[in-house]
């Protein structure tokens, strides 16, 4: 009964939106597959994946440092997390793109304590929109991933480390071969969450002029003034991306749950098929 009422309300809501004519759906449809929007979609995906990878790499490194007995390592990691988690990612993006080229005029990679320069470029050419977006989003994500990985490492039973120590394994080997593989099961679900969040947070890169989805959409509506339609287009694509990521996360989790739980949870398809058997409760509601 409750399900039927909810379905009814949903139908009403959809009718209300369509009838209000607040947006011209022909325009929405026209720009949905606009070339510029599709390039923006690709850029959103590229920057999200790369920034997430930077975040995961940094996160693993920072969490291992944070758990180290060496106070220099753990304090450095603590300070990093404190700073990057404590300031808005929007400010960090602006900082990389606007402030850094003002302070440092050139970007150079050199061999320490010598004058040998391996790579040199004016900072304004090095710190492109893409680079600023990658650094801003990736370094910020690293701080969050560090906490996720740290929690996962702590969740692995200490007996596992002791058994590895008793075999004569050194701490780096123990981390790589024994602890991290077991921490994966705990790392995967929140990391999927972080990636879904990253897909949307990447829209902030529009402020450093990176041509991702939102930037492309707003570039178009600033000339043709179809604000609602283009924001709808962007939203539709964000929903598509996050939906795909959600499904991917579900199956990834299911894979890593093997060996840990006795029976795997049903996939959505399996669940629907099971529910369609006549006589099941929700089948009866619809009748």
């Amino acid at each position: 009964m409750a399900a039927a009422v909810l379905l009814g309300l949903l139908a009403l809501l959809i009718r209300l939106i369509v009838n209000s004519r607040f947006a011209d759906f022909a325009v929405v449809r026209h720009y949905l597959f606009n070339r510029s929007i599709l390039v923006g979609l690709r850029n959103t995906l590229v920057i999200s994946v790369l920034a997430q990878m930077v975040g995961i790499t940094l996160g693993v490194t920072l969490s291992v440092m944070r758990l180290s007995k060496n106070p220099v390592l753990s304090v450095t990691s603590w300070l990093y997390i404190w700073f990057f988690r404590g300031t808005p990612v929007l400010v960090q993006l602006l900082f990389w793109f606007n402030a850094v080229p003002q302070v440092f005029k050139t970007f150079a990679v050199s061999v320490p304590f010598t004058h040998i320069v391996l790579y040199q470029k004016p900072m304004v050419l090095f710190m492109t929109s893409f680079m600023a977006a990658l650094l801003g989003l990736g370094l910020n994500e690293g701080a969050y991933m560090a906490e996720i990985v740290r929690a996962a490492i702590i969740s692995v039973d200490e007996g596992q480390t002791e058994a590895a120590q008793a075999l004569g394994m050194r701490s780096g080997l123990i981390m790589r071969r024994v602890v991290l593989p077991q921490a994966m099961r705990v790392i995967i679900p929140p990391t999927g969450n972080e990636f879904i969040s990253m897909l949307k947070t990447s829209s902030l890169a529009s402020v450093v002029l990176y041509g991702e989805l939102l930037r492309r959409a707003s570039d178009i509506y600033s000339t043709n003034l179809r604000v609602v339609e283009l924001l709808l287009d962007a939203s539709i694509w964000y929903l598509v991306l996050t939906s795909i990521a959600t499904i991917g996360q579900y199956y990834l989790e299911r894979r890593f749950a093997r060996g840990a739980s006795r029976e795997l949870p049903l996939t959505p398809l399996q669940r629907i098929r099971r529910n369609l058997v006549p006589g099941r409760p929700w089948f009866r509601v619809l009748r």
Binding site: A163, Q182, G259
Partner: peptide, 30 residues
């Protein structure tokens, strides 16, 4: 210390087998 520990076998009350490895992998890892 690691080298010395390699020469001393230890068996724990709670077994502490590596949960993500098969029995044979547990035995061959060291």
């Amino acid at each position: 210390l690691a080298r010395l520990r390699a020469d001393i076998g230890m068996v724990f009350q709670s077994f502490n087998l590596f949960a993500h490895k098969t029995v044979l992998q547990n035995v061959t890892l060291g």
